[in-house]
Structure formats: C-alpha cells, structure tokens
C-alpha cells in the first residue's frame, strides 16, 4: 500500500511522542538498572516503584532557573541543545521502528490510514541515520565552545577527537553488511535477514565493531569522555541547567535508542517474526536488549582516556574493519 501524507505525519508524531517518552523512561531504567547492579533500590518513592520519577524530574527541569553565563555566546549557547535533540529525532525519521500497520477502521477520522514503518523511506536510510547522528555531535561541540568555560572547551575538544575517531570505524564496520545485502535501505536489511538469517552470525566482527562505534557515538560509558564528571566536571554541559540541559539528555537517550534500533535491524534480524514471537514484540525485545547492554556496560566497565580512544579507533579497530571489508569482498567475489 502506498504511504500517504497523513500516514507519514502520523508516523512522525508517533516517533516524536513515543520516543521522547521512552527517552524519559530510559533515564528511569538506567537509574534502576545501575542501582540493582550496585545492590541499591534506585528511585522508589515517587509513584509505585518510583515510576513517576520522570514526572518529578521533568517538573524540576522545567522550573529550574535557566542560566546563561556572562561571557558566553548567547545565540550559540541557546542553539546547541536544540541541535542535539533535533538531529536525534531527525535520524529516527529514517529508521523502521515498527512494522507497517493500518489504523483499524473503527477509529474515527484516522481509520483506514496506512502508517508506513519508516517516516521517510529513502533508499540510503542507514547512511542518512549515521550522518544525522554525526551531525548531532555539533551540539556538544558548540555548547562547549560557546560557554566561556575551560571545562566546556575541554569537553568540546574531546567531542572533536571522539567524533573524528569513531566515525571511521562505524562507517567501515557497516560497509561489510552493506556489501552483502547490496543496498543501503534499512527495509532491505530487514528483508535480507528474513531470508538468509541474522547478519550477526555472518558478520560477527562487523557487529562488534559497530557496537563499539555505537557506544562512542552515543557517549556511553567506555567512551564517555565528553562529560566525564571525575575528570572535566561535566564537560560540555558544565554551564547548562534546566530544560537546555534536559534537551541534551533527551537527545542522548534518543541516540541510544537509534543505535539500538540500528543494531537490531541491521544485525539482529529486524522486525521479522521470530519463532513464536510476532515481529513487533521481537524488535522491541531486541532493542531492549541492546539498550540494557549499554546500561550493563556502564555499570561494569571503566572508561578509557582520550588517547586510548584514539589509539583504539585508529590503530586497532580501523585496520580490523578494513580487513573485514576486504575479506567480505573476496568471499562475495569467489
């Protein structure tokens, strides 16, 4: 069925509403999982099992005083969090989050509307998502440079370093699966894995490299150089408060979801039916697993120094990724 404008708009609203809600819920999950792994309880007192903690945090963020430092560049300072949040959601527009569905006809006004799995089904979906997520790092960079704070400048410099390091690895690691599938469209990845099985098993090296790159892309723990509290106070977010800071947070969690969805769709079989599980449940479980993996790693592993990150990306991961691409090419040719 053809995607109508109404269907695309509905999909966009679904992405915006649900993902930003999930991003808020992600903070709750992160606090809970980290707490359990440290034998604590986590948030408990707002609502049952602390479920309403997001609301309390939201109220706090919205009513907090919004401070702009005296010597800061006001325009860029205000712009930076918007870049992070906006690019995170733009990236999600090209990601198939749920399978296609048609709104049942008993619902008034919208009944019978076909909602596509992707808001913008462009043929080069995966490149678009990676490019948009890369553009998202302008948020921390500009934030760090605009705030006239030394910790901010260090955070911004680390952003540039991290970006230039991991971007090569992510691009090269995703290249081998692209060669196998022969398309850049995420829907084709999904269809390929329904016929030939999960790409995770045919491309294990690429999967691990992509996960590492994804952790660096979302500033998760082994690579959370940008805002590591023990070293640079809060890095790029030092001078931010209130909702501006909250937008950074929403962007970060939306990016985490994007990376989870990408690895689920590209490497873990997408939204195909799995054994007895229907497709939508299978993809939710896969996304949840990758999301949990991010929290799990944060609870377990220490983080690396910036020079170690550069060493890892340029001297170890990039050669491995290139070798992987070459081997894949030879195998495809033979």
């Amino acid at each position: 069925m053809e995607a109508t404008t109404l269907g695309v708009v509905i999909k966009a609203i679904i992405i915006l509403a649900i993902i930003s809600a999930i991003a808020g819920f992600g903070t709750y999950l992160e606090r809970k999982v980290l707490a359990f792994m440290q034998r604590r309880l986590g948030p408990m007192h707002v609502g049952p099992y602390g479920l309403m903690q997001i609301l309390a945090d939201g109220i706090k963020l919205f009513t907090k005083e919004d401070i702009i430092p005296q010597n800061a560049n006001r325009l860029i300072f205000a712009l930076a969090p918007v870049i992070t949040a906006a690019t995170a959601f733009i990236a999600l527009s090209a990601v198939p989050v749920f399978p296609d569905f048609t709104i049942p006809s008993w619902i008034p006004l919208l009944g019978g509307t076909f909602v596509p799995s992707i808001a913008a089904d462009i043929n080069i979906g995966i490149l678009f998502v990676l490019g948009m997520m890369a553009a998202g790092l302008y948020g921390p960079l500009l934030a760090g440079m605009a705030q006239a704070n030394k910790w901010g400048i260090i955070g911004a410099a680390r952003t540039a370093v991290q970006f230039l390091s991991y971007e090569v690895v992510t691009g090269l690691s995703i290249l081998a699966p692209i060669m196998i599938v022969g398309s850049l469209s995420l829907v084709d990845f999904n269809n390929y894995s329904s016929e030939h099985g999960w790409l995770m098993f045919t491309q294990p090296v690429a999967f691990v490299l992509f996960l590492i790159g994804g952790f660096a892309e979302t500033n998760r723990t082994p690579f959370d150089l940008l805002e590591h509290e023990a070293e640079v106070v809060s890095g790029y977010a030092t001078e931010y408060s209130g909702m501006r800071w909250g937008m950074f947070f929403i962007g970060e969690y939306a990016n985490m979801i994007t990376v989870s969805v990408l690895s689920a769709v590209v490497f873990m079989g997408g939204y195909n039916d799995m054994w007895f599980l229907p497709g939508w449940l299978a993809i939710i479980l896969k996304i949840a697993f990758v999301f949990f993996l991010m929290l799990w790693v944060r609870a377990s592993w220490p983080h690396v120094r910036p020079n170690q990150l550069m060493w890892l990306c340029w001297k170890v991961l990039m050669p491995i990724a290139v070798i992987n691409v070459v081997v894949t090419g030879i195998v495809i040719m033979v």
């Binding site: 490149l127 678009f128 990676l130 490019g131 948009m132 890369a134 553009a135 790092l137 302008y138 960079l141 540039a160 970006f163 230039l164 971007e167 691009g171």
Partner: peptide, 11 residues
C-alpha cells in the same frame, strides 16, 4: 555531502 562536510567542518 552531509557526512563529508560534517566531518570536515568538525576538523
């Protein structure tokens, strides 16, 4: 264009 120039301007 997006990927290349985002990286280049970052440098």
């Amino acid at each position: 264009q997006l990927i290349v120039y985002v990286g280049a301007v970052m440098a």
